[in-house]
Amino acid sequence: MSRNLILGAGLSSLVVLSALVSFVWTPYDYAALNIPAKLQTPNARHWLGTDHFGRDMFSMIMVGARTSIAVALLAVGIGMSLGVPLGLAAAARKGSWLDELIMRGNDLVFAFPSLVIAILITAVFGAGAVNAIIAIGIFNIPVFARITRGAALSLWEREFIMAARVAGKSAAHISAEHILPNVANLLIVQGTIQFSLGILAEAGLSYVGLGAQPPTPSWGRMLADAQTMVSFAPHLALIPGFAIILTVLGLNLMGDGLRDWLDPRIRVARS
């Protein structure tokens, strides 16, 4: 295993762990306001200080991790569960009207700047975590559809697929039984990258007020709230900023590491 993979997996699991722990324990109630204790810098009682309402920043970051992960995970889930079957279908019927329809539909969605459209979707259907998930999820569909189709196309030319076809297996059957397992590695790597993009997108949406609504903490909104206070309470912006950076960095490192680790050619070359 490469150093990247270990570091990436370490950072990512730290974030996931704090999100999981936040379900059973946080140092303080993340939603409890304590106005007289506002704007404290990190200290023994509040490890990461308090925000402008006197809420404990450490607890908010923990629960914020939960929000980010939930939104990004579900969004990637939507993208995978719709994108992968579409990609498989397109590859199985290469060159047909179905392939054209799916791929041109993909191009259409791909052509829009994803965050701008996500803002449009949440602005029209209302701000909130659920709509953010849907908006980010929609833009994950073409990513997975393309990567699946690309990988599947080359597989369809291989001898073992030929053998399966000669044996009389249907295209759907072959896709599920032979193609999917062989593109799985690729999907896991892409999933990790998309997951980190999802976290960024969620932070972006909540920064402009269209993500999870208060009192649910969200890193993006913590940044937005901190904006006017940067000059006298920089920790309010630095802490969620670092949380976002470390999470995205961790996921990207992990994605890179996974790709190298899972790629048979590199593995063979190494051994």
Binding site: A31, A32, L33, I35, H52, F53, P214, P215
Partner: peptide, 12 residues
Amino acid sequence: RRGGEIIAAQLA
């Protein structure tokens, strides 16, 4: 915006 967050917490 800020007052609303505080009031929501107080009502809760």
